[in-house]
Simulated scan of single mutants.
Amino acid sequence: MLEALGIERSPSAKGCPHDSAVDESADGIPRAELARREAFGTTRELRARLSDYVHRHDNFRIHSTLGYMSPVEFRKAGPSLPESSK
């Protein structure tokens, strides 16, 4: 999916698992919620749906680790996590 969108990954050093967990988790969400539920006829169609998905995820979907705010709301609120999610 990243290759289709022209995005280059920057993984950590070989044998360092720290990026892998975040990467697998981040990749798994759109894969489960978008890619496995739909078929795309063209790369353009994939890009449009992925763009919509990311927009909804960043602007409207709340996250418990962000104090039940969307990522956009969290960024606007400031750099620290609420005490309840630490």
Results as ranks from 00 to 15, higher is better:
Asp23Glu: 13
Arg61Tyr: 06
Gly6Val: 04
Arg75Cys: 07
Gly41Arg: 07
Arg75Thr: 10
Ile7Lys: 07
His55Leu: 12
Pro71Asp: 01
Ser10Ile: 12
Ala21Glu: 03
Ser20Ala: 12
Phe60Ala: 13
His63Met: 06
Arg56Trp: 15
Arg37Thr: 12
Glu38Trp: 09
Ala77Phe: 01
Arg36Val: 06
Leu2Lys: 11
Lys86Ser: 10
Arg47Glu: 12
Ser25Thr: 07
Arg9Gln: 11
Ser12Ile: 06
Lys76His: 14
Phe40Cys: 04
Pro71Gln: 01
Ile29Tyr: 08
Arg61Asp: 03
Ser84Met: 07
Phe74Ser: 03
Thr42Met: 06
His57Arg: 15
Ile7Ala: 15
Val22Trp: 00
Pro79Trp: 09
Ser84Asn: 06
Ala77Leu: 04
Lys76Asp: 10
Ser85Trp: 05
Phe74Tyr: 10
Thr65Lys: 10
Glu38Met: 11
Ala48Met: 09
Ala21His: 09
Ser70Gln: 05
Ala21Gly: 08
Gly6Lys: 05
Asp58Val: 09
His18Asp: 08
Pro79Tyr: 07
Lys86Met: 10
Ser64Lys: 08
Pro17Asp: 00
Ser25Phe: 10
Glu8Ile: 12
Ser51Gln: 12
Pro11Val: 01
Leu50Gln: 01
Leu50Lys: 00
Gly78His: 04
Gly28Pro: 02
Ile29Gln: 09
Asp23His: 11
Glu33Asp: 12
Ser70Asn: 04
Ile62Asp: 06
Pro79Gln: 15
Ala48Lys: 12
Leu81Ile: 08
Phe60Ile: 13
Leu2Gly: 03
Tyr53Asp: 05
Val54Leu: 14
